[in-house]
Amino acid sequence: MISRRHFLSATAGAAALATNLPAARAEGGQIVVGTWGGDYGQLLSDIIDKPILIPKGYEIVQDIANNDPRKTKLLAERQSRRGSMDVALLSDSDMYIVAQSGTFDPIDAKQVTRLDKVFPELRSDIAIPHIYSAQVILYNTNQVKTPPQSFADLWDPKWRGRVGLADILYPNNTLAAALAGGGGPSNLDPAEKKLLEWRSLDVKIYPSNEALAAALKSEEVWLTTMWLARGFMWKKAGIPLGHVVPKEGAPAIVFQGSVPKNAKNKQGAFAYLDAMLDAKAQVGFADKMGYVPTVTDAVLPEDLAVQVSLSEAERARLLKPDYAYAAARTQRTQDFWNKEFKG
């Protein structure tokens, strides 16, 4: 038989539980992060998940895949009531394409409190900028004594068979070719002629960034166009590399994070984005991966800044992508790369 005292204590307990439930939902729970694996995934875990979010009661699950499968998954799931990711990490150009179909929630400045620390030029309505870098020329310092100064110099016949490209970076390689031909982020037309010239100069194509790194290490190729950050990582791995910020300009790449509209744990997702902007975490990413912080209060040690940042003069040559133009042209860029350039 239930006594009055038992009944009261039980209802009080239930009431306490009920009042605690929203609090538990407000902070905590599982956050599924769609991310790259490898060093990047490990750093997210070491620098963001473990020190910042797990102590707050969150459980972080990484959904590891490359950019393209994640983009496809987001687009395929966009009509579903519940998506599989709470946080989606993508490069800026892919983020733009996916955002066009209304996949993401706008960034909530109330929940992402560090948004005001983000460099204004990197801000976006639908994503936070996590890290960024610039597309530069990397060269093997043992073999290239007089490095090229521009993308156009990579077409010099003296580098025949010595320029290597990563197949997966075909949009970026196409942009480098456009810049070499007098075009730019909003005019990729000159790229097509330059790519065919490159092909006749026996440019080598590698299936992945890692395969390209191996070819640079074995000196099968001496030159490439790549993110400065990746050059930093490859140098740390023992490949003798130098870099040049090309005269035509260095296209910027920003890796961003956003919250799909059908995320299960939106509160946790925005907390995750906030943690990604943590100053200490940003410095950690620069130190390990060479990507430059996106917030004003993340100050890099001088020796690190020299290696991963651009000088004032070089920063002036940073080129912002024309997302709308690139997205509208995506099929043509891919078709030309596959059919004419590689074919």
Binding site: D68, K71, I97, I205, Y206, P207, T330, Q331, G343
Partner: peptide, 24 residues
């Protein structure tokens, strides 16, 4: 994909390319 490299073409990788790389 692994032994043929980026220039080698067969149908199954072409199907994957359209689905995943091109989102087509």
């Amino acid at each position: 994909v692994l032994l043929g490299g980026p220039r080698f073409k067969m149908m199954a990788p072409a199907v994957y390319d359209q689905f995943v790389r091109g989102n087509n």
